[in-house]
Design a protein around this nucleic acid. Structure first.
Length: 678
DNA sequence: GGCTAATTATA
DNA sequence: ATAATTAGC
């Protein structure tokens, strides 16, 4: 065993020992060194928020103790550069192999690619696996081989794939530990003094860690799941799975979730239990949305900062920090919105329905830039997840082809009647309205003065009047939209006249986040939650895009040869390209594809396909066709040109991308060739 | 059975 | 908001 050298299993958002392909491969190969690297500076804007860090801390401790029971431990490293930290671990342990599971957020795509290059160059074998998804993003394409652009089609295909998702792997019985005597752990600091008190409260409601996640899954499947379909409308009830933070950190395998759900569904279907059967479908769909968020991030890595529908670039967002602040504090004057925002701040948790309500209000009524809201969710949610958040906000904002209609404004008052008919939710989070009769609870501004007085409500004093009237929001939205279309048409005309990138393209740079995103504690319900003092501000940097590499592909012989070698190496380890039913696996196809293409012109076929689609077709969006303009799925007009410009150094925040340039241009081939399904 | 009203779902 | 589905007559 030891003659083979040991494997580093680099754990990230796969903090579990069960169904962890990278870990399993390491155990199979011999001695294992499990490593977690805390390098939040690499995340740019997206330094994890307080509650998310709290979760991570607990989850790592839990994992470490499991690993110790199995015969090893978790080595933790504090770093500002994962690549050099991994190289250090290699040096101090003599490891010959690096194993990890795939991530699909834009930062990881680039970073993990660099790591493959760097470690391979140092003679370390690198293998990576799918542990996060039912199917890899590149496995799901339409009949012509193009990625889907709407969720429904995507999910339909996932459920009808010719091969099932991998079956979950059992946890290893025992792990042989590599020699870590010269590889000490760093102590990781996840909270500071001011955060401890609020964090202590979290432990009452949540139990991070993979075996707790497993219990939560079982509890849900044997409990609330059967009623999931019927209960999903109720905003204020404990009828959800509460799995999302567990899933974010990979404490539970989505493939295990899938298999258990299918089993349950089968037995309910056999009993003729319609409600149960339907509940499984509905819950599976939310798993599907999580899958789709990775799919979208992989195919459009800038989707957390740019609308996918090109014309939305020209929407004149209201850059008003006082609106933003009122929203964060739950002082908009709309009870359902305010209750939601206060619950979010106080608990780090929000029912999906309420997330829709508050974010839709943010985008459509306040017309604030959706990325601000997304960032706030990132900072405050316990299950903060960049890919899911980006999908959610783009959906709400109507900036993806199957998003909500852009010109639709939901009225929080009516949503209140629907989701909180008795006003219990509002009363719980807005004590100042607690004595208001239910008829007025979602629109106190209409209540007679005597009623307000009796309830102790003083509008404009202890509870605000609506900061924006719905009617004026509608008018403003109309105006903004017609402005948007004008700008879009002007830009289009400019491009057609050969002015190329000259298009007064101020919107190509996302609106910066406000300087002050801290939450000020000047209202009641959250008094005992201290101010977050550790929101770090790192230098403004946009995350790099993989799409530019997809569209502007300049392969270099040396690199591709290197990749091919590595791919062959790993394939030798894992010879089974044929699954149980004898169907050719998609990853085999992908490899063959890529190799074929190498001999042609260095362009993987999928890239050609993307390029063709982007330039020849446009995807029409229902809400806008009435205006006679066909919006385009933005690669063509916006980010193709735009990102090339950025890579040339013209962009405002090209530093990160310049640093990563070479790796950047080989992104796709890397994933397709080096990926292994263990 | 066929119409309208009410309900429901909507990524 | 709206389209689709179901309930009620």
């Amino acid at each position: 065993m030891s003659s083979r050298g040991c494997s580093i299993v680099w754990l990230r958002r796969d903090l579990r020992v069960e169904d962890n392909p990278a870990l399993a491969a390491g155990v199979r190969a011999g001695a294992v060194i499990a490593v977690f690297i805390w390098a939040p500076e690499e995340e740019g804007h997206y330094y994890p928020g307080r509650v998310s860090r709290w979760w991570l801390k607990q989850s790592l401790a839990h994992l470490d103790s499991s690993l110790r029971n199995l015969g090893t431990c978790l080595i933790t490293k504090r770093s500002t550069d994962s690549v050099s930290s991994l190289l250090e671990v290699v040096k101090s342990t003599g490891a010959t192999q690096l194993l990890f599971n795939h991530l699909y957020d834009p930062i990881s795509l680039v970073r993990d690619h660099r790591i493959k290059e760097a470690l391979t160059a140092h003679g370390v074998a690198v293998r990576s696996f799918n542990a996060d998804l039912l199917y890899e993003p590149w496995e799901i394409n339409d009949d012509e081989g193009y990625p889907f652009t709407t969720f429904t089609e995507f999910w339909d295909r996932c459920l009808r794939m010719p091969f099932d998702p991998e079956s979950p792997l059992l946890p290893p019985k025992r792990i042989i530990s590599g020699d870590v005597s010269r590889c000490p752990s760093d102590t990781l600091i996840f909270e500071d003094e001011s955060e401890k008190a609020s964090n202590a409260l979290l432990a009452r409601a949540w139990s991070p860690g993979w075996s707790n996640a497993d219990k939560a899954l079982t509890t849900f499947i044997n409990g609330q799941l059967i009623e999931y379909s019927r209960n999903r409308r109720k905003a204020d009830s404990a009828t959800t799975s509460f799995l999302s933070p567990h899933l974010h950190f990979g404490e539970v395998s989505v493939r295990k979730v899938f298999h258990l759900l299918r089993l349950k569904q089968l037995s309910w279907a056999n009993e003729g239990n319609k409600a149960g059967d339907e509940s499984v479908n509905v819950f599976l769909k939310s798993i599907g949305l999580r899958e789709y968020s990775r799919y979208m991030s992989f195919n459009h890595p800038h989707s957390h900062e740019k609308p996918l529908l090109g014309h939305l670039r020209f929407f004149p967002w209201v850059v008003d920090e006082s609106y933003f602040k009122a929203w964060r504090q739950g002082r908009t004057g709309y009870p359902l919105v305010d209750a939601g925002m206060r619950e979010l701040w106080a608990t780090g948790w929000l029912h999906d329905r309420i997330r829709v309500v508050v974010s839709s209000f943010f985008v459509k009524v306040l017309q604030l830039p959706w990325r601000w809201g997304m960032k706030y969710f990132w900072d405050t949610l316990l299950d903060a997840d960049l890919e899911s958040d980006a999908l959610g906000w783009q959906y709400i904002s109507g900036t993806i082809p199957d998003g909500r209609q852009f010109d639709r404004i939901d009225n929080p008052q009516f949503e209140g009647d629907k989701f909180d008919p008795n006003g219990e939710y509002v009363r719980r989070w807005l004590p100042e309205l607690a004595r208001l009769p239910t008829v007025w609870i979602h629109h106190p501004w209409d209540a007679p003065e005597s009623v307000l007085q009796a309830a102790g409500v003083e509008l404009g004093s202890n509870y605000p009047l609506p900061i924006v009237e719905i009617d004026s929001a509608k008018v403003r939205l109309e105006e903004a939209l017609s402005q948007m279309w004008q700008h879009e048409a002007a830009a289009r005309a400019a491009t057609e006249n050969g002015m190329e990138e000259g298009l007064g393209d101020s919107e190509s740079t996302p609106i910066a986040f406000p300087q002050d995103m801290q939450m000020e504690m000047d209202h009641e319900p959250v008094r005992n939650a201290p101010v977050v003092t550790t929101v770090r501000r790192y230098e403004d940097q946009m995350v790099p895009s993989m799409t530019s590499s997809i569209l502007r592909y300049e392969d270099e012989e040396t690199t591709s040869v290197e990749f091919r070698n590595t791919a062959e190496e790993s394939r030798a380890e894992v010879p089974t390209n044929v699954n149980a039913t004898g169907t050719l696996r998609a990853d085999t196809l992908a490899q063959d594809n890529a190799q074929t293409v190498h001999t042609n012109n260095h362009l993987p076929q999928i890239n050609l396909a993307l390029r063709r689609r982007n330039s020849e077709e446009s995807i029409s969006e229902s809400s806008s066709s009435s205006r006679g303009v066909v919006p385009v799925w933005s690669p063509q007009t916006s980010y193709t040109d735009q990102y090339i410009g950025e890579e040339n150094g013209a962009g405002p925040s090209s530093s990160y991308m310049q640093n990563h340039q070479q790796s950047h241009s080989h992104q796709v081939i890397n994933w397709r060739e080096l990926s292994q399904t263990g």
